[in-house]
Structures are given as C-alpha cells and as structure tokens.
Design a protein around this nucleic acid. Structure first.
Lengths: 238, 238
DNA sequence: CGTAGTATTGAAACGGATCAATATCTGTGG
DNA sequence: CCACAGATATTGATCCGTTTCAATACTACG
C-alpha cells in the first residue's frame, strides 16, 4: 500500500445518484466540497490482494473507492469467511463500530482509493451540513445494498441467488459497455461467501446458467450476459 | 392511525448509544435539538395491525418509534413476505428510495411513533450539522443491524438462526428486566420471514431449544431464556 | 362459545453441504 | 517464452436438514 503525495484526483463521491430523489432534496457535491474533501484526504494505491485495514483494528479514517474493486469480509469463529460486500468506484467503506473496523477490506485488483481521516472529516461535516447530508444519503445507499443482500440470501435456489448477484453486479458497474463481458474480479469462493453458498454450489449453479444459455464465462473472471430478459426473470422470481 | 395534537413527549432518538464511539466523536441530542425535532414532528398512535405506510407509496416523512413494536416487510413477486426488520423504541424508519418507501410498516402492538416530515427535517439538518451527524450515526447503526442479519441468514441451521435472533432481540430490548420473559410480539410466521425459514421450521427449531432446556415459551408471545450461556454459545457458533 | 387465523406435528422429497478426486488456471522463475 | 507449482475451479457421490404438503391442535377475538 503506497501513499501518493500528488493529490491530483478529486474524490467523486457524487458520481452515483447521490441523494438524488431519496426524499431529501440534496444536490451533488460542489467543486468547493470536493476541494475540501481532497484537502483532508490521501490518495492511496493498493496492489491486488493488499489489505486496506483489518477487522478489529482501531479506526482512524473512512475510505472512498476510486478505481478497481475490493472485498470486505469477516472471519467467523468457525473459520469460514463471510463476504460482507464487494466495493466498486464511488463506494464508501470503513464505517466503524465502537471505534474499530468491523471487517477486513482487501483489494481484488490493483486499486486506488481515498483515505479520509475521521478527525478532520468530522470537522468538515460539522461545518458543512450539506456535505453531511451527502454522506448520509451515501450511507442510506449502503443500507439499501445490505437489504437487497438479505433478499438474495433469503432465496432457496442457488441459481436464483447467482442470477440476482449478476444482475446486481451489472447495475453497480454502471460504466460498462452493453453486450460486453462484465469483469468478475472475485473468486468463486468469494462469491460463495457473499451468497452464503458453498464454493461447489456456486460452480454448479454457474454451469447451469451457462447450459440454460443465459450467460457464458469467456474467462473465469468475466461473465457475458446472453439472455438478459430470462436472467432478470430468474432474478426477480423470488 | 390517529394524530395526537398534544405533543407532550419529545423524541428520544438519543436513547440508544447514538454516535457513542462510532469513530466520529458525537454527543447525545441536546435539549435544543430535541425541541427543534419536536417542533416539526407529529406524535402518532397506531393500533395493533395498523399500517404506518405502504411499499411504493410516495415518501413524505421519516418516523421514530417511541413505544411498542413494528414490522417492516416487503411483498415478493412469489407472494411470500420477507420481513426486513422489527422496529423497537428509538428506531428510525421510513428512509425512502427514489422518493418512495421500500417496504410496508405495520404495528405489531399498540404503538406510538413520531412522524418527521422530510421538508422541515432537511431544513433542520442543513442548519444543524451536529444533528445531521446524529442521524448519520443512527443510520450507520441500522446498517450494522442489516449486516448482522446477513450473518444470521448465512447460517445453515435453523436452531442457530433462532438462537441468534433471540440473543439479538434481548440486546435490542435494552430496557427489559433480567430473568423475565421477553415479549415476542411477532408471529411465528413473521419470524420465519425474518430469518428466511419456513414457518414449520421455526416452530420445530423453537421446540428443539425448549427441549434442550435453553428457553421456554410461557406463552406463544413471550420467551424466557433459561440458559443464557449455552444460548449465546449456540448463537456465536457460526 | 364458535370461528378464523395461527401454530404444531408428521411423512416424504428436494436441494445444498460435504468429502473426495481431478482438472484448470495463474503467476513465478528459469 | 515456456514449464512448473500452488492455488483455484470443476465434477461426482452421498448425506443431512429444510421445504413442502397435509392433517390436527390451539388461541384469540368477536
């Protein structure tokens, strides 16, 4: 993990529909707010498999993903790993509980993120209520993702869970070209941990979707959606 | 659902460890803030089974639970109901997406809650950044609950899920006397919807815990924890 | 006191977990 | 650029627990 001294890139917390229509009428980040955020943050590059922070470590900062993808996971007493979230550009992570991080965050690819120390952030949020609303909307967004996850994990069939996972993924990677393969930076094992399935079941269910002609795996780390209609039908059919 | 004109009770958003140690150093609500909140909110009484708002309805306000318990649920295409959350005093609910509520909230008992209209709330949050931080911490708290839920639902065994549900419940009802029965205002079916199990499995797993001597059901709507140690052991053993 | 919703109990079958063996990929160094 | 080693993924067979369908018991409310 290396810290770039050149803070040439501004956080783009606003790229996602940030507060747009969540009830509270909030606008996007202003140039001034981005500048303020930048002033207190550090740009960090992380190599693939690099750890950003570990579970239970004392929390000093929150992070905003800029490039690449991360996974957030928790180690369970049984030794199993439950993947809490996959993090993509513009995602906020590192919200702590009782001053400590609740999960470990690891880079899946070469990544870039912004590190925003808590002390100055709190000051900034206190002086700029509008920015506070922005953050709040972002966190509400996180909350939505978590609730969607619960719906996914409540499903019986592995096929259905994978279908939901893929459609969700497609929506999250808003910047990808249509009819091209989606990057799948995580391992099958990570997907299993995310969906609450065993690795073998993920593999089998994936193959089923391929056999059904809904998707294909150009490589193990990319998916191509062949029949979006039927895939979404399968996903919605909870 | 009736609106009381007498606004004699103040919202106690702060009763829960609100912002205490979440990294950002935030204090409890001041008298002034509670007063401001009260000024814009309405106290509402809801009879058991009364609906506070429905899924997809246009959102005008957020709510703070004061007395009693609610369930929040979503109707799935298959007709099944997934229970998103059980809401207890001091819980915040009604956060919308794209200006509409994402689930239906129904009272499980006779309840009292505060209705906080969005427009004035946004104004208040804009003028009082500190209050904004309070809300933010509250929402982060919600996020934690959602993440715990995901852990619960990831478990294989029904017994384990029920054990976690009960221990969580006990923690949420911070005001209950020890060694007394916990109120269980929701139906077995609601619990099933919450845990992603079938109603029958909830019933069977409950009976197993009774047979094991960990709990007992004085009535169908209350639980008594007999062996907290073993119950928590079962709960933690993920 | 009856009735409708709610809960329990039983029997059978489906689906995913697990254990185990093999195949494929990835990245490293020659 | 290729070969090799370790990690990752696929595939197969069996087991176990939950779901489902079905029948009965309970309880709360009018």
């Amino acid at each position: 993990m290396t810290r770039d001294s050149s803070v040439d890139q501004l956080p783009t917390l606003s790229a996602i529909p940030f507060g747009a229509g969540d009830g509270l009428p909030v606008k996007l980040l202003t140039a001034r707010q981005r500048q303020d955020l930048t002033a207190i943050s550090t740009r960090i590059s992380v190599a693939a498999r690099g750890i950003v922070y570990r579970e239970d470590a004392v929390s000093n900062a929150v992070y905003i993903c800029r490039e690449g993808a991360f996974k957030a996971f928790r180690e369970l007493p049984s030794g199993k790993r439950r993947v809490t979230a996959f993090l993509y550009p513009d995602d906020l992570f590192g919200l702590a509980q009782n001053g400590r991080y609740v999960n470990t965050v690891q880079a899946l690819t070469r990544t870039v993120c912004f590190r925003v120390p808590l002390e100055p952030l709190a000051g900034l949020l206190r002086s700029d209520a509008e920015l506070g609303l922005q953050f709040m909307c972002k966190i509400v967004h996180e909350l939505r993702s978590a609730q969607l996850r619960m719906i996914i994990m409540g499903r019986r069939s592995a096929r259905g869970r994978i279908a939901m996972f893929l459609t969700t993924l497609e929506r999250q990677l808003s910047g990808h070209a249509p009819r091209t393969a989606l990057p799948l930076p995580m391992s099958r094992s990570d997907i299993a941990g995310y969906l609450g399935l065993s690795l073998e079941t993920v593999s089998r269910a994936g193959k089923q979707l391929v056999t059904m002609g809904l998707i294909s795996f150009p490589t193990r780390h990319s998916v191509l959606v062949l029949d979006r209609t039927r895939l979404e039908q399968l996903a919605k059919n909870v």
